[in-house]
């Protein structure tokens, strides 16, 4: 329906994923899951193709994407930051750490910096409560973090 700006190969990849789920409307969540795994996020153009393949309206696909917090329409940064907001981390000041990241990066939760370097998200408990508060950057774990330490950590990645 829309003016699709995707490359032919990307469109074919999406079609392939839809077909692997039998193009069934009931598999929309699984399809979106897999496509996001492939592309990292679900831009409008991608949703258009999925809607067409599954024969449901784009509005309904968009409804699913916006309902589940797992799905995202903004691309993740090169270094995705996840701040644990589980109970242990929270009581040990995770919120202040999160605020510091927001201030330093000038973005909100679920957003990505304009240069595409960092994206900021929250998660619930990574099973390292002994290190609370915990922050993940990519695969790397940072424990016992204080707001003062945020800038130094970011500088590791900024250069």
């Amino acid at each position: 329906m829309a003016k699709v700006k995707l490359s032919e190969s990307k469109i074919n990849k999406i079609k392939e994923i839809c077909a692997s789920f039998g193009n069934k409307p009931g598999e929309a969540i699984n399809v979106l899951h897999k496509v996001q795994g492939e592309f990292g996020y679900l831009p409008a153009e991608v949703q258009e193709v999925i809607a067409q393949e599954l024969n449901v309206s784009v509005a309904q696909i968009y409804g699913i994407v916006t309902f589940y917090s797992f799905f995202t329409m903004t691309p993740k940064g090169e270094f995705p930051i996840s701040v644990c907001m589980g109970t242990a981390c929270y009581v040990r000041g995770a919120e202040k750490v999160l605020d510091e990241f927001k201030r330093e990066l000038k973005i909100g939760v679920g957003q990505t910096t304009p240069d595409g370097k960092f994206s900021l998200n929250c998660l619930r408990c990574v099973g390292a409560c002994g290190l609370a508060p915990v922050v993940l950057i990519g695969e790397k774990v940072y424990g016992r973090l204080t707001p003062d330490g945020v800038k130094d950590i970011l500088n590791e990645y900024r250069s």
Binding site: S57, V58, Y62, T66, F67
Partner: peptide, 20 residues
């Protein structure tokens, strides 16, 4: 026609066209 769908969740939930 498929112009409308419930989108977002919780307090932000509305019925809207695709991509609002």
């Amino acid at each position: 026609v498929g112009a409308l769908s419930a989108v977002n969740r919780g307090f932000q939930a509305v019925v809207a066209p695709a991509f609002e």
